[in-house]
Write a protein that binds this DNA or RNA. Sequence first.
DNA 1: TTGTAGGCGTTATCAG
DNA 2: CTGATAACGCCTACAA
Lengths: 352, 352
Amino acid sequence: MSTRAPRTRAPGRRATIADVAVAAGVSKATVSRFFNHRERLLTPDIAARVEKAIAALGYSPSPMAQALSRGRTRLIGLIVADITNPYSVAVLRGAEKACQDAGYLVMLFNLGNESGREREALNALAGYQVDGFILNTLGRGAGVVDAVALHGKPAVLVDRRHAGMHADFVSLDNAGAMAQVCEHLLDGGFRELLYITEPQKGVSTRRERAGAFSDCLAAHAPQVKGEVFESEEGDTAGLNAALRALQQRAKRGRRQAAVIAGNAVVTLRVAGAMTQLGWRFGHELGFVGFDDPEWAPLIGPGLTTLSQPTDEIGRAAAGCLIERLQGLEGAARQLLLPGELVVRGSSQRAQA
Amino acid sequence: MSTRAPRTRAPGRRATIADVAVAAGVSKATVSRFFNHRERLLTPDIAARVEKAIAALGYSPSPMAQALSRGRTRLIGLIVADITNPYSVAVLRGAEKACQDAGYLVMLFNLGNESGREREALNALAGYQVDGFILNTLGRGAGVVDAVALHGKPAVLVDRRHAGMHADFVSLDNAGAMAQVCEHLLDGGFRELLYITEPQKGVSTRRERAGAFSDCLAAHAPQVKGEVFESEEGDTAGLNAALRALQQRAKRGRRQAAVIAGNAVVTLRVAGAMTQLGWRFGHELGFVGFDDPEWAPLIGPGLTTLSQPTDEIGRAAAGCLIERLQGLEGAARQLLLPGELVVRGSSQRAQA
DNA sequence: TTGTAGGCGTTATCAG
DNA sequence: CTGATAACGCCTACAA
């Protein structure tokens, strides 16, 4: 007998490997092998007995105990800056799916936009011995770098890269996307552009888009003019003013004006401002927004958007991480996925 | 010495209780007590030594090992029917927050609308010994009842109740909400109503809303007429036809027509149909929709909505569950939270 | 091929 | 108050 006093299993309790062992009249090791080392076959007779016992007791190994023993949990920690953000959710969805398919479960930690809690999140998740991290966060705080390094677990960054960090990175090809957007607006005859973004601070994606915007302007100067405006949450007055100023410049230069919104949140703000100003998309102002929310077709004449392959991004992120977990070595990789321009009414110049 | 060969800790490895013990020159039990039984104080001297060792090694107990030992994980399993659904996400957000605050972590499982996977999800989560479940799913399949019962863990249902299941239930007060909506439309002079819902099947929330709608009609018959229409995904033709029929009936009876959308998904469909028909909210048709998405103010004259306290619902759900985990006994509770009517242009009758 | 005997990191029981 | 020691459920040398 392997256990001292094989006290009868309480009815509610999950069957353990020991229960199976006694039921099959074998040792725990044999049962364990039945699961983990199928290759070196057990005697057919024994295998059959074990299998029967397993079925009878409805046994399945406890991942917790396995984790403790092997040091791997098949758990992936997913940290999200703000689960309210549809972009994050879309990515999350793709990632969770990929994890499930690969036999991993996701432990979620939502920062609720309190970026100071990154460390706390990392520690909490690391405590549960997650095998790796998917991070869709990383404000300016460098704090995360060493924290991740500390626990020595692989991580993959989504959408927001971080300079010093040795980790795979998955994101939209921001430069390419912005180029597409600008190209489209220029083709449409727009010559006075305004790029509206949330405060750039240290957020890589925002900076990259703004940078690409400037590059684009530079490439087409001086026929095309443009500016960047940082829109703060709640500052509707500032946004309205910026739009009016844009309009003025356009009129003065006798050129068509268009706005590019840096993400869906900004799009929402701009749409609000348009209503307040009594302006219509495609008339007073051309418009293209990053992200393609489901309601984009319903605003005014339909909003032209740059749709991100969010699902793909999530899947790719999970994929990268899992490859690392399977032992892939090598330098940090970088996956830049292309966006797709979805043309609707807001970027069609109204006839004068 | 407690361990046979206190082999020096590999640099990368997390400090264990044993490491702390040797560093402080005490037994593992003492270190454990330092964390768990603060009440019965240790000798100040010893406590100080332990504390110092803990700090020096940056030790924190492994939740995994604790779980194995105590049988509780401080993990909560959250199963969501479809994480794409903003309602689910909003609830998720509230729940996750509440869990965090109470020191629980959330393990997420997204069904991706494949309701057949409920069982799989439950098992996966139960495998990790989650202490309890929050379920925002439960199609018709009764399968879940016994599965949950099987693992003997407490659960709380969100938004979708299930007859046979002994579990706390948290949701919007559907009947009250629908009454508010109807009242508002009647006050506005609308007399020909159409309630559009996703297929009711066994989904309790959908049935309750439809039921309340009918009750409301009955209470105001015969001055007010109304019907229920089940809108299938993708069946835009059917939806358009239903709207045209509504309009016909209204004209024939010389009454104002209004539509009530059962949730945000339906609202989106209706808005799409309106565009196709070339109708405007508040003119050809009055409108109120359940759920208050951020884009509601931006569609036409602004959509009047019945806003659910999603955050509150999520928090309440987590709260209920945690109370159970703390030992609360008693019959299954039912928490029906009130909705809030947000009046915008779509429900103001246009002047004739 | 199978069984025995640790060990993974904690907690809990029971002596001292 | 503190320290051995035995679980918790599983895996894995090592021995048979």
